[in-house]
Computed example of a mutant assay.
Amino acid sequence: MVIFIIGVGTTFIVTPLSADRYAQLEFGILVTDMAILFAFMMLALSAERYWTIWICAMQVIQVLSHIPKMIIPELLPQAYYVVIAFWAYPMLLTLAIGTYRHQQRLRQFGVDRSWSDFSSSRESMMHQR
């Protein structure tokens, strides 16, 4: 959730409040989307949960959504906005479902174990420090 909050805040900061918003490539939003992608990739590599991989995949699509504006500069600003904003909603839904499933496993089993021994040994090493 922290990645989403920082991403939204940064997007508001880098998006100019002008009449011609989304009339050309929104470079600040593209850079923000790429930073968010990097953060989600790091999360997906360490979290060992499917939902993190799905969010990462949707963020890849989010970043690639800027390409049509690069290729077709006369693309309608409203269409560009919808294309780059759309994937935030399925990503938030995926986060909600992943969090809900995590809570279910905690209630049912008392723990939500990692998939690999590597994560378990890494966690035990962290607790020993």
Results as ranks from 00 to 15, higher is better:
92 L>Q: 10
15 T>H: 01
66 H>R: 07
72 I>S: 12
89 Y>I: 13
55 I>M: 12
30 L>R: 01
8 V>M: 07
32 T>N: 15
47 A>S: 13
118 F>R: 13
73 P>D: 12
42 M>N: 08
104 Q>N: 09
43 L>H: 03
94 T>W: 04
32 T>C: 12
29 I>N: 04
109 F>I: 07
114 S>L: 14
28 G>C: 07
65 S>N: 13
9 G>D: 05
77 P>C: 08
26 E>S: 13
45 L>F: 12
55 I>S: 02
9 G>F: 06
94 T>M: 12
24 Q>V: 15
36 I>D: 00
53 I>K: 01
122 R>D: 12
46 S>C: 06
22 Y>S: 06
26 E>V: 03
11 T>F: 12
95 L>Y: 14
114 S>N: 10
6 I>W: 04
76 L>M: 11
33 D>L: 04
12 F>M: 11
49 R>V: 09
100 Y>T: 08
93 L>Q: 04
10 T>A: 07
21 R>W: 11
19 A>G: 08
86 F>L: 13
106 L>E: 04
33 D>P: 03
59 Q>W: 11
12 F>W: 11
50 Y>T: 14
43 L>N: 03
127 H>M: 14
125 M>P: 00
48 E>P: 06
90 P>T: 08
63 V>A: 04
78 Q>K: 12
23 A>G: 12
53 I>H: 00
99 T>F: 11
32 T>D: 11
18 S>R: 13
59 Q>S: 07
28 G>E: 02
63 V>M: 01
93 L>D: 05
93 L>T: 13
97 I>Y: 10
104 Q>F: 09
68 P>G: 08
14 V>R: 01
93 L>E: 05
65 S>D: 08
54 W>S: 10
77 P>T: 06
72 I>P: 02
28 G>Y: 02
26 E>M: 10
89 Y>Q: 07
69 K>Y: 05
57 A>P: 00
48 E>N: 08
89 Y>E: 05
99 T>A: 09
94 T>C: 13
78 Q>S: 14
14 V>G: 02
58 M>F: 15
87 W>S: 06
33 D>N: 15
89 Y>C: 02
8 V>R: 01
120 S>W: 07
5 I>P: 01
28 G>I: 03
113 R>D: 13
75 L>C: 09
65 S>I: 03
56 C>R: 02
53 I>M: 03
21 R>F: 11
68 P>S: 10
40 F>G: 00
45 L>W: 04
82 V>P: 02
37 L>I: 04
5 I>E: 06
86 F>Y: 12
32 T>H: 01
34 M>V: 15
24 Q>S: 15
48 E>A: 06
91 M>L: 06
11 T>R: 05
70 M>Q: 09
40 F>C: 00
8 V>G: 07
87 W>N: 05
105 R>F: 11
33 D>W: 04
81 Y>H: 10
110 G>S: 06
9 G>S: 06
57 A>F: 13
95 L>R: 04
86 F>P: 01
62 Q>A: 13
83 V>I: 15
96 A>Q: 02
5 I>V: 13
18 S>A: 12
28 G>P: 03
115 W>G: 14
73 P>I: 10
119 S>Y: 04
95 L>W: 14
86 F>E: 04
18 S>M: 09
6 I>T: 05
11 T>V: 09
38 F>H: 02
107 R>Y: 09
79 A>M: 14
54 W>R: 08
28 G>D: 03
44 A>N: 05
110 G>A: 05
102 H>S: 12
9 G>H: 06
10 T>P: 01
20 D>K: 11
59 Q>T: 14
121 S>L: 13
74 E>G: 10
